[in-house]
Design a protein around this nucleic acid. Sequence first.
DNA 1: CCAAAAGTGTTATCGCTACACCCATGA
DNA 2: TCATGGGTGTAGCGATAACACTTTTGG
Lengths: 247, 247
Amino acid sequence: MENQSDNYTTLSLMTKSSSTNYYKDADRLLLAVDCIIFGFDKDSLKLLLFQRKVAPFQEEWSLIGSFVKKEESVTKAAERVLKTHTGLTNIFMEELGHYGAVDRDPGDRVISMAHYALMRLQEEDKQIAEEYKAQWFEFDKLPDLVLDHQQMVQDALEKLRRKARYRPIGFELLPEKFTIPQLRLLYEVIYQRDLDRRNFRKKILSMNVLEKLEEKDKTSSRKGAFLYRFIPAKYEEMVEKGVDFVI
Amino acid sequence: MENQSDNYTTLSLMTKSSSTNYYKDADRLLLAVDCIIFGFDKDSLKLLLFQRKVAPFQEEWSLIGSFVKKEESVTKAAERVLKTHTGLTNIFMEELGHYGAVDRDPGDRVISMAHYALMRLQEEDKQIAEEYKAQWFEFDKLPDLVLDHQQMVQDALEKLRRKARYRPIGFELLPEKFTIPQLRLLYEVIYQRDLDRRNFRKKILSMNVLEKLEEKDKTSSRKGAFLYRFIPAKYEEMVEKGVDFVI
DNA sequence: CCAAAAGTGTTATCGCTACACCCATGA
DNA sequence: TCATGGGTGTAGCGATAACACTTTTGG
C-alpha cells in the first residue's frame, strides 16, 4: 500500500507556513527547462545552440536551458531562457515534453521540461546570439549534443511537422513580408519533400489569408516574386479554429 | 546577466559524488504526476477519480497522482500511480503536459506532469477501483475537482480527440473482440457527434486492420452484430506509420 | 538573347458525404 | 409478426495530384 505522501492531492491547500510539513516526506528534485529554437533564414532551417565554456565538455554544444526557480512558473522559466539568449519575447513557443529518466544527467537527478520555439531569422539575431555565445546551425549539419539533447531535437522536429498539419505554424518562421516560393521552401524544409509549385500556390491562396503587395523580392530571381503579407484577422481566425492545414 | 547556475548544461556530467555541489544553488522543487484515466464501458466514456479521505477537501474528488521519487523516472511514477489505483500495467498512457504555475497548489510549489491513459472497462476494473477508493464517473457528469484538475481533464479530452485523428487510439479502449457498432459508438463519444453507419464501416474496413470472427455479439440487438478483432501486425504498422485516421 | 526562377490552368482520380431499403432475430 | 438494431450500394461533389508552357528581366 502506498504511503500517505503518495497522494499529494489529499494534503493540498494548506497555508504556506505549514505546507512544507505536509509534503516533507516527498523528494525535492531539480527541474530544468531546455529550449529547442528553430530559425528559418531565407531558405534553410536552423537551430540555436550554446557552446559550453567550462569543463567538462568544454566547447561542446548544448541546447540552451536553465533551472526552474521556485518563484517562477515553468513557462516563465522557458521565456526567461529564450529572452536571455536571443533578446526576444513573444515568439511562438510551446511545450515539447518532459525528459525524466533518472540518469539523464550524471550531475544530479534533473528533470527537464523541453520547449520548442520558432523564429524568423534576421541578421541582427545572429549578432545577438554571438554576444551570448550562442550560434545558429544548419539543421542538417548539427554537431553532437550533450546529454539527451539530440533526442530532444529529433522529437521537436517531429512535433513541428505534426503541428504544422493543423496550425499555420510555418508562418511564425517567416519575415513579415515574404514570397510564395519562400513559404513553399519553408514547408519543403519542414516536411523534407518537394511540393508542387502550382498546387501549393493554389492551396495557400484559396485560404484567403494572404494579402498581395505591390513590391517584388528580387533576391532570388531576375524576374522577382511578389511579396505577400498575412491578413492578421484571418490568421488569428485560422489559429483559433485549428483549421486543417495539410499541404 | 544570468548567474552561473542558470545554465545547468554548462555544468553537467560531473561525477555523482561532486554533483550536488555544482547544482547547489538551484531550487529544489516537488514534482508530481497526475493521471487522467479514460475508460470506455460498452457505450459511454468514463473517468477514474479518487475521493479524498482527509481534510481539507474531505470527500472532494481529485485525479489520482503522486510525487515523483528521486530514484524513479517520471514515466515510472505515472505507471506506479496507475498500477496502484487500477492494478493495471501496460495500458496506453501518454504525457499530456506540465502544470507549472507557481500557485497551483497552495500546499507548496508543486509542478505536475499530467499523463492520460485509456482503458477498456470491465466489471473487475470497477471492483478494483472500489478497493482503492476510486470511482468511475460518466464523463459528462463529473464532480468538481480540486486544484487545476478540471483543466487537466479538459486538456486531456482535447488531446485525445486530436490524437485520435492520426493514431488508432480508440482501439485501446475496446475489449479484444468488439463489434463495428461499438467502435463507431466509441468514436461518436470521443468526437461528440453522430457518424454515418455505412460510411464508418466502409472506412474502417478499407484499412484492412480488422479480422471478422464467426461469433456474434447479441447483447444489443436481436439480430446480433459480428465480432471483429485487430490484426496485430497491421495495427502495429498503422501506429508506427502514424497513418491518418480521420473519421 | 539566354539563363533562371516565377507564374499560370486543365484534367483525371480518389475519397468523402449523403442517403433508403432489406435482413435476422427474439419476444 | 413486429420491433429493433445490423448490414449493404450508389451517385454526386469537391479536393487533390499530376503535368508543361509562357513570362520577366538582369547580365
